[in-house]
Structure formats: structure tokens, C-alpha cells
Amino acid sequence: MATSEAAIKVRDVFHRFGAEGEQRFVRALADTSLDVAEGELLCLIGPSGCGKSTLLNIIGGLMTPSSGDVEVRGQPVRGPLPRDIAFVFQENSLFPWNTVLENIELGMTFQGVSKSERAARAAEVLAAVGLKEFAHHYPAQLSGGMRQRAALARALSLKTPILLMDEPFGALDEQTRMILGEDLSVLLAQSRKTIVFVTHSLGEAVFLADRVAVFSARPGSIKQVIAVDEPHPRRPEFATSAKFTALRNQLYRLLHDEIRKAVQQSSAADTARAGTERA
């Protein structure tokens, strides 16, 4: 079965929303194929609405593609794989009625982890993300950055070989983002997990990824994959190196036209929608 060392295999995945002829019909993802090697950090980058998140949800088994296959560690994906895959979402997905600690333990409760083991792992991941003192805070009492640290801790506590991160720092300010990115790089270098990381940020992609997959505008497909040959954990100095700048510029050139296309698409769609609503 598991003949390849690829942790994730995506084969000709196509996805659309709605049916043909409907107003909300959207070809979200054109035929996409992709391999993610064991222990690799792959960034997906592309214009808004290009289907990066859709692809991530399909890999994680949260959505079923209209056609195509996904294999995770040799097994075809039919639904969520909580033992293999943990998610970190962009939106705050902590349960607001639970404290940070309760949130972390809850994920393990779902998977039947014993009580003592839960406590031990929770303490470990809380320390790892630097939230030890905030274990008994409610999410609403934390800043956005701390909430995402907590969500990351929850995902790490599940000890899955694969981590899917959907713009985890998307809603944060630039500086928080930078610090979280550095910390994440250190953390992930230790864990050697396989990671797929969706982002909008060119710098974030270059800073974190082993490879960056650049998406075209809708219907999204992979336009090019760029390798970032730099050992983990990445040092802050990397962000100011000439290599970093060159890669970032390369990404910018690749993305620029796609982003324009995407913006035009979405404003055209807005006009069309406004038109039908008025009618």
C-alpha cells in the first residue's frame, strides 16, 4: 500500500460549489495534483478565493472533492482523520466557554486519551507555545495572537504526524505575525511534522516553507512550486538575507498578475450579484 514516502498525495482534485448554471456556481479548484513529503513544510500561497483553503479542507477530509483522490499516509481520505491530521484554522476556533487548558484537553478527550496523559500533554504543549500562565483564561480574555498560540497548542497536543494550518495568523497584525512565525519555525523544527500551511503573506511563506506552491487565480491550480533551501529552524537573520529577498521577489512576480486577475474577478462578481439583487 504505502509504496511512496509522500505523506500526502493529491491526484487530479477538482472542486466546484453549486451546480452548473446556478448563480453561485464556482469552479473553486481546477485539476490539482500535489505530493507532500514526510516531514516537509509546504506553503500554499495564492490570491484570495483561489481554492487554497478548499484544498486544505479536502486533504483534511472536511470536504469531499467533486472529483479526484487524496491519500494520506497511503490511505484514501473519506472523512476527517483525527489521528493523522490536526487543524489550525484562521478563525478563532477555540471553544469560548472553555478555558485554554480545557480547550486543549477537550481535543484529547474526543480521542479517548486518558486523564493523566491529557494533563501531561497539555502542560507540555502549553509550555511549548508559552501560554503556561494563561491556562485558566477564557479565549475572550486573550489577544488574537495568544488565541492562535492556544489553537496551535491544541493541535500539537493531539500528536498527529500531519498538521494543516489554514492562514493561522491571517487575522493578526504584522508584528505579532512575525514573532509567531519565528516561534513556529523553532517549534516545528523539533517536531518534524508534515505540514501544509496556507498563507497570504509572501514573507511568511518564504520564511517557513521547505517548498512554496503558488496558486493561480480561480479556478485555482498550482502554477509553480518553489523550493526554499534553508535549514530549520529558520533564524531571524534569514528574513533579512539576500536569498530571502530574492525568493520573496520571485514569488511576488509570480503572484502579481494572478492577484490582479482575482481582484477583477471578485469585483465583477460583486457587480453581478448587486445587479441581480436589485432586480
Binding site: 460549489f17 483553503s53 478548499t54 486544505l56 479542507n57 472536511l62 470536504m63 484554522f89 484562521q90 478563525e91 478563532n92 488574537g144 489554514d166 492562514e167 491571517g170 487575522a171
Partner: peptide, 11 residues
């Protein structure tokens, strides 16, 4: 909060 609409869920 200034959260952008969830990408995965509604779809």
C-alpha cells in the same frame, strides 16, 4: 471580533 468569515465551514 474582526474575524473574516470562515472559509471552510459555510461552504
Amino acid at each position: 471580533k474582526k474575524e473574516r468569515a470562515g472559509a471552510a465551514a459555510p461552504q
